[in-house]
Design a protein around this nucleic acid. Structure first.
Lengths: 348, 348
DNA sequence: GTGAAAGCGCTAACAG
DNA sequence: CTGTTAGCGCTTTCAC
């Protein structure tokens, strides 16, 4: 009946009292059970369940132990790409008993800064970030102050940070090469109003391929920007299509910034009565689970989303290690050719 | 040049020293700026930026201030339904300066228990959970020990907890009613191997509707279970279809546990050469962004995912309030009739 | 208005 | 093996 557990939290003191030992013995049972005499240990363990003891994480942290919490800062955690990424992070972290604090910036540098500050205050174990702000000084500062930072899909340059990335330039090249080899010479590159690094690099990749093939990119690659309303990017894309069709009738292919946008594009083309791929080819990016099941099945550039997250988390956990050196892990995107791309129509 | 900021973390002590005041004055500047003389305050504020002061959250918590971190425990954070839910939670929390710690249980009660323990240790502000374990005692205990718990899609019964839910029985009814009114009398209910509460309730709803219409559910509603491999539920569903077609040729409609499974079902039917909705009708659940863009566009039951998360977070934040009383917020799912359902074929 | 002091729950020497 | 002690960084009375 000594079981008073259930009402409020009790600490090591109560445990010690019930077990008739000192707090440090309780502490020993927790962190170095082997040095405690088995009978004592048992007594303490019983006392712990009797009072319903739950260790207090923040107090431990105050004593200098690392927090099990890792911050993940992405553009939008509801975006399937980042949801998968976060899952990869979680998978790797959970093996180490760590947890993911998932945050969205909605493409706003201000929010990003705010989140970095908050995470720093929480003294998280580290931060995995897909930055929107091209200026890395804030990140470097966070890192210098003792919170490890892992970059996702951001040029590392000479930065003194770890990074993981899928090569976006290659991704853009793959998409453009494919269309080029099919015979397309008037290609739209559909992006958002705000252009995060990865999208810009894909465009650059596409441009390079065209130039290398002797096609003038300024002429062959038409840049189209959607108004950014992240909540419903697919309907925005559908609208964008109307505009494309109206102003650029000569276009024979569209490269979309991601599969979600491609979804909207397919819909827009469908309602406009334009056939895919017969009249216009469409290429997505990310290879989300639904891409292969659309009709037509979407040709897209695959990214290893979970593995990316996993790699980031592993790098972060490795920062603990005394002889850790910052490094970069690279992945290559791969083209998944499906049914949404074909040679351009004969008559333009 | 006194600016030593950048190397390691510095605390209130350094700030106090640089500003030539005591720690308590620094503390006052932070928590009650008004009682500090303006010149002093300015001096302190300058000192804070000079040393690059970052408050230490855990230490504050130790002094009894609430943590800004809220745990969200779902079946899988990469599942678009839960990703949207988490985003709703994040939206509401961010307005209060709080953050979401997102966790996945993968339908395993053991993981759930483990996560609850971890979150409790972190002394989070509260926990929002979509429980897989039907036994609520662990949750009640967490709550009694001082960590507020908000239930998602879990029967509250007389439990002394807040809850938010979309009425799953109604959802099942809507789906079944729709098919029934189209003339279907042999309907498959496709679920996973593990049957979380929400799915069980949808099946129950479907059953009720059939019974109420004078159709024997034991006969008209065929229960089909997929092997649970959460990572690729869509391909599993595609496989399940083969089996359905082989063993139950008389079926004219399939209700899927969610849209992702429906994706696989559509694919499976397509490869099997079965036309949707001409030969078989398909109904999904959740109304994910891609549902309306499939072909045929998916008839499905819509759930207000973000609002659900928002409501949960708001209830949680309200638990702070001294005169808070536990309550339940309900949402009604709605049927979205699209192109994947039609009357059954004449000849069976 | 400002500072001194106590202590949140825990860990880590160090003594016994 | 076990207990004593001294803080970790911060908030909060309570004197000055």
């Amino acid at each position: 009946m000594a079981n008073r557990e259930g009402l409020r939290r009790s600490g090591m003191r109560e445990v010690a009292q019930v077990a008739g030992v000192s707090v440090s013995t309780v502490a020993n049972v927790l962190s170095r059970p082997s040095i405690v005499a088995p009978p004592t240990r048992r007594r303490v363990e019983q006392a712990m369940v009797a009072v319903g003891y739950v260790p207090h994480g923040p107090a431990r942290q105050l004593r200098g132990l690392p927090s099990p919490i890792v911050g993940s800062v992405t553009l939008d955690l509801a975006n399937p790409f980042y949801a998968e990424l976060n899952r990869g992070i979680e998978d790797a972290l959970s093996e180490a008993g760590c947890l993911v604090l998932a945050c969205s910036t909605d493409l706003q540098s201000a929010k990003e800064r705010q989140l970095l500050a908050l995470l720093q205050e929480q003294a998280v174990r580290g931060i995995i970030i897909s930055p929107i702000d091209p200026d890395p000084t804030a990140l470097l500062q966070v890192s210098r102050r003792g919170t490890p930072v892992i970059l996702i899909d951001h040029p590392r340059r000479q930065l003194d940070l770890c990074a993981v990335a899928v090569d976006d330039v290659v991704g853009g090249e793959l998409a453009a090469e494919h269309l080029l080899s099919l015979g397309h010479r008037r290609i739209a590159f559909l992006a958002g109003a705000i252009d995060p690094g990865p999208v810009a690099r894909r465009r650059e990749g596409a441009r390079r391929v065209l130039a290398a093939a002797g096609v003038d990119p300024a002429d062959a690659l038409v840049d189209i920007r959607m108004s950014d309303h992240p909540r419903s990017s697919v309907s925005v894309a559908a609208q964008a299509v109307e505009q494309i069709l109206a102003t650029r009738p000569a276009l024979t292919a569209i490269i979309c910034l991601n599969d979600t946008a491609a979804l909207g594009v397919l819909e827009g083309l469908h309602t406009a009565g334009v056939r895919v791929p017969d009249d216009i080819s469409v290429v997505g990016y990310d290879d989300l689970h639904f891409a292969a099941r659309l009709s037509p099945a979407l040709t897209t550039v695959h990214q290893p989303k979970r593995r990316l997250g996993r790699a980031a988390a592993e790098l972060l956990l490795d920062e603990e290690h005394p002889d850790h050196t910052h490094r970069e892990v690279h992945f290559r995107p791969t083209l998944r050719v499906r049914a949404s791309t074909a040679p351009p129509p004969r008559r333009r």
